[in-house]
């Protein structure tokens, strides 16, 4: 009996100690699928874009780091350049209602027309479901998915982690790097970096 209890204890310990299985969104791994409602009221399903490059951009219009790339026109330029080459670009807003950066469909449409933003669509993710699926930590955070559906870049927009517009000229843009290299059949040189910026304002977080 005592041995049996010891055995049971061991089993229990092993079960408890088993690593929690997380479907990690990670460079080199398949991009987790999602369905999102955009500010244009259409529904977008990531799997429908198999065969194309997809860029994910986490966004919060009140964040100084997001503003750095929008007030300067840098993000809009990237959106125009890459969607012009048939690449799909989703701006994703994971701010919870009441938190900085939260917008409804109208608010986002007005913002995009005012700023001249032209992503394929802006996905409204107030529950944070897509954000958590990709473990998005900051705005802006950028993810590039290749036509096979594999994440080939995850991290910062560029190598200057500041909120200063003056740091944009001369910065190494990692999204351009990843897309440029992948399009010419080369491996992506810098595939993962620390994303910089404001924390994503998820529901339930206090900072």
């Amino acid at each position: 009996m005592k041995r049996f209890i010891t055995f049971l204890t061991l089993v229990a310990l092993l079960v408890l100690a088993a690593p929690v299985l997380v479907l990690a969104a990670k460079v080199g791994q398949p991009a987790p699928d999602f369905t999102g409602t955009a500010s244009n009221n259409q529904t977008y399903h990531l799997a429908d874009y198999h065969g194309k490059f997809v860029v994910l951009e986490w966004h919060n219009n009140g964040c100084p780091y997001t503003q750095k790339h929008y007030m300067s026109g840098n993000m809009q330029k990237l959106q125009k350049q890459w969607t012009g080459q048939g690449i799909v670009w989703f701006t994703i807003i994971s701010s919870a209602p009441g938190k900085q950066g939260y917008v409804d469909a109208n608010g986002e449409n007005n913002y995009m027309s005012k700023m001249g933003a032209s992503p394929t669509a802006a996905l409204l993710d107030p529950t944070g479901a897509i954000g958590h699926l990709y473990d998005a930590k900051t705005t802006p955070q950028m993810i590039v998915i290749n036509p096979q559906g594999v994440i080939i870049y995850d991290g910062a927009i560029d190598n200057r982690p500041t909120d200063d517009v003056k740091d944009i000229p001369g910065a190494t843009n990692y999204v351009n790097g990843a897309l440029g290299q992948a399009l010419s059949g080369k491996p992506v040189e810098t595939a993962a970096t620390r994303p910089y910026g404001c924390s994503v304002k998820y529901k339930g977080t206090w900072f």
Partner: peptide, 12 residues
């Protein structure tokens, strides 16, 4: 000095 001060939101 340049400093980022945050609570729930961040202010440079």
């Amino acid at each position: 000095l340049r400093v980022l001060v945050c609570r729930e939101i961040c202010i440079p």
